[in-house]
Amino acid sequence: MANHLGVRIVSGDFGPGAALPIESELCEYYGVSRTTVREAVKSLAGKRLIEVSPKVGTRVLPFSEWNLLDRDVLAWRLQAQFDVKIVEDIFEMRLCFEPRASYLAARDGTAEDHALIDHHFVELAAAHEQRLPVKTISESALEFHLAVINASHNGLFVTIGSAVKSALRVSSEMLQRHAGPPSEDIALHDAVRTAIVGRRPKEAARAMENLLAAARERLLPLTVDAAE
């Protein structure tokens, strides 16, 4: 129920300031108990999509109030409208912290961190070379990026990486469906890996910038075509 209402809110079915149906109407519509309705409403309120007030009821909050880093909110936005703006937002955010995370991973990452990055790179390269399903390749790419972020040992970066996991997964899957030459994707990831493991922070940051820029250039035209 929370998922269904969440998608309707982020897609604009219920605009900012709009009131949600009253509790009894939601119970009847979804065929659930009052307890279930209250739990769903509580969940959405925790994500700052709605506000519950005894005087005015349950109303949708403005976009500026939403917790946009919440995993569910990101997933609902991507499900409702995978448009150019969302893709641009994702890559702008990634460019703000992933190159720096790569820098820190090269400088401060442990031998175990680097071994894990190596492991996920080998999995990604093998998935490409064996022409495994798109979902498998995208999951390998996702795990590689998360390993780099975790190796930064910056608690805020790690939290952000976990929060936007759903957005990274969706964009990664879309990229792999329209991927360029596998050798190019492997080379871009290998440049990041090699610089991190070689403890060359500045080179690692540049390599990650190059990887994200290439991904952005591939993905943005696809969302424009989809919108048209």
Rank of each mutant, 00 (worst) to 15 (best):
R94Q: 07
F97V: 09
H120K: 01
R100L: 15
D113Y: 05
M93S: 06
T110K: 07
R94I: 00
T110L: 07
E98V: 06
M93P: 00
L104W: 08
F121E: 01
E92Q: 13
R100Q: 14
E98S: 11
A105Y: 01
D108C: 03
P99H: 11
H114S: 11
I117Y: 01
A101D: 10
M93F: 04
F97Q: 11
M93H: 02
D118I: 01
I117K: 01
L104F: 09
Y103G: 05
A105R: 01
D108T: 03
P99L: 12
I117T: 02
P99Y: 14
E112A: 10
R107K: 09
A111M: 11
P99N: 12
E92G: 03
H120I: 00
Y103N: 07
R107T: 03
A101Q: 12
H120A: 01
A111S: 12
L116E: 06
T110G: 14
S102M: 10
E112V: 07
L95I: 13
D118P: 00
T110Q: 07
G109K: 09
A101W: 07
A115T: 14
E112M: 04
D108G: 02
F97C: 15
F97W: 10
I117V: 07
A115K: 14
R107Q: 12
R100S: 14
R107S: 08
S102N: 13
R107D: 06
G109L: 13
L95F: 15
A111Q: 11
S102G: 12
H119W: 15
G109A: 12
E98H: 08
H119Q: 14
R107N: 04
L104E: 12
R107F: 05
A101L: 12
S102V: 06
D118Q: 05
T110C: 08
M93C: 04
R107P: 02
A111N: 15
D113F: 05
L116A: 04
E92F: 06
F121M: 01
H120T: 02
L104Q: 08
G109N: 10
H119A: 13
F97E: 09
E92P: 00
D118N: 09
D118S: 05
E92M: 07
F121Y: 11
